[in-house]
């Protein structure tokens, strides 16, 4: 099963901009991001997760254009073709 994960701004600098990842059915969104972040950069992992492996509350998580809370990301299982985006608080304008 293939999904796309995109990181933006500071998270992109630490973890890369776009990753296509092959995953097994039943993987939660949070688990998927933990696996990728750990593999890519310890600093990047620490930017997203606390010591207990939970998303920092300010991290914004989107799945197919819909924002999920960190607790939701722990339970939502990713599906074939999902488009996941992870980014810090917005600062445009």
């Amino acid at each position: 099963m293939k999904v796309r994960i995109r990181f933006f701004a500071r998270f992109r600098e630490l973890l890369g901009s776009e990753i296509m990842e092959e995953i097994t059915k039943g993987t939660s969104l949070a688990e998927l991001v933990r696996i990728i972040a750990l593999r890519r950069s310890r600093e990047g992992y620490d930017a997203l997760f606390d010591r207990g492996g939970t998303f920092h509350p300010f991290v914004i998580i989107m799945r197919n254009g819909v924002r999920l809370s960190p607790p939701e990301a722990e339970h939502v299982q990713v599906s074939e073709g999902d488009d996941i985006a992870i980014f810090p608080p917005v600062a445009g304008g």
Partner: peptide
């Protein structure tokens, strides 16, 4: 230096579960 958002703790940033 990345400019921090004005809504750093979930107070105003992108509403949850909103379909775009």
């Amino acid at each position: 230096h990345w400019v921090p958002g004005e809504y750093p703790h979930n107070t105003g940033n992108i509403p949850l579960n909103e379909e775009l």
